[in-house]
């Protein structure tokens, strides 16, 4: 009976994984297809990769996705860190109110945040395009950065910066030499979240961008009526890149640990 049960649970989990990975495998297989068909594999070719690299719109969308994600990550991490530190030392009422407002974009459907920003930019007479796209990305990334830094600030001993100030450090020195190193893990994970949020965003980008400025998501969306196997090639490259990065992120700490243990044994 027990064996039967564990067999069933294993079977179920295999089905779940098959459901998750089927479309990904499908895309990879059909990116090497000889014909335009998305349902019949007619033979192996690399033509969709060639077409993808020759397609200027696709290449530009990759470029904008990366550039926006990098700038938005840097700016939102810096602003988010400053705001989070300020917030941790603020009065309770200010703190609660700020957190409530900060949560609004996360509680609301994304499309509401998106059209709100679109209305804002046009009301201020800012022409939509690269700048508005970037501003929007910075705006939705900051709350996530703050959320990942705030627990670290709460864990920090409040006497540490106090002691630094008493020992003659300027507030700036206390900030850079004491507070920032203490909360560094939070800053790093905040930056990672910001980068992936920006890299994958569609809804907010779609409403805040202008003519000619597309990211990968917007490009894929624009293909909703057409069959374009170049997207399969693009998807395959993204899948491979993300898998490599995730494996490295998960394996490097393991290898480091093993090396450390080995060194300990040798020592």
């Amino acid at each position: 009976m027990k064996k039967l049960k564990s067999l069933f649970s294993r079977f179920y989990l295999v089905l779940v994984l098959a459901f998750f990975y089927l479309p990904i495998l499908y895309v990879i297989v059909f990116s090497f297809n000889d014909s335009k068909s998305l349902s019949k594999f007619t033979g192996f070719s690399l033509q969709w990769y060639e077409k993808m690299f020759a397609n200027r719109t696709i290449m530009e969308s990759i470029y904008y996705t990366v550039v926006i994600a990098v700038i938005a990550t840097v700016v939102s991490t810096i602003v988010g860190t400053i705001a989070a530190i300020g917030l941790s030392k603020s009065k309770r009422i200010v703190k609660e109110l700020t957190l409530q407002i900060n949560n609004l974009p996360m509680m609301n459907p994304e499309i509401v945040t998106a059209i709100g920003l679109m209305l804002l930019f046009t009301s201020l007479n800012i022409k939509t395009g690269f700048m508005t796209l970037l501003l929007a990305h910075i705006a939705f990334c900051i709350p996530y950065v703050m959320l990942s830094i705030m627990p670290k600030l709460r864990q920090m001993d409040p006497n540490l910066p106090e002691a630094a100030l008493d020992l003659g450090a300027t507030p700036w020195q206390a900030l850079i030499k004491v507070i920032v190193p203490e909360i560094m893990p939070g800053i790093v994970s905040g930056a990672l979240i910001a980068f992936t949020m920006s890299f994958d965003d569609f809804v907010i980008s779609f409403f805040t961008t202008g003519p000619g400025i597309n990211n990968i998501s917007i490009y894929v969306y624009s293909m909703y009526k057409r069959i374009n196997p170049s997207i399969n090639a693009l998807s395959t490259i993204i899948v491979v890149m993300i898998t490599v990065v995730l494996i490295l992120v998960n394996v490097i700490p393991l290898v480091k640990e093993r090396k450390l243990k080995k060194n300990e044994k040798l020592g």
């Binding site: 779940v16 994984l17 998750f20 990975y21 479309p23 990904i24 499908y26 895309v27 059909f30 998305l38 349902s39 992936t196 890299f199 994958d200 569609f202 990968i216 998501s217 894929v220 969306y221 293909m223 997207i231 399969n232 693009l234 998807s235 993204i238 899948v239 993300i242 898998t243 995730l246």
Partner: peptide, 18 residues
């Protein structure tokens, strides 16, 4: 389970079309 979530939602949805 988390790995596919890192891949762009539109890319994964487009995959189901085929």
């Amino acid at each position: 389970i988390t790995l596919p979530m890192w891949i762009n939602m539109l890319v994964r949805t487009y995959a189901w079309r085929g």
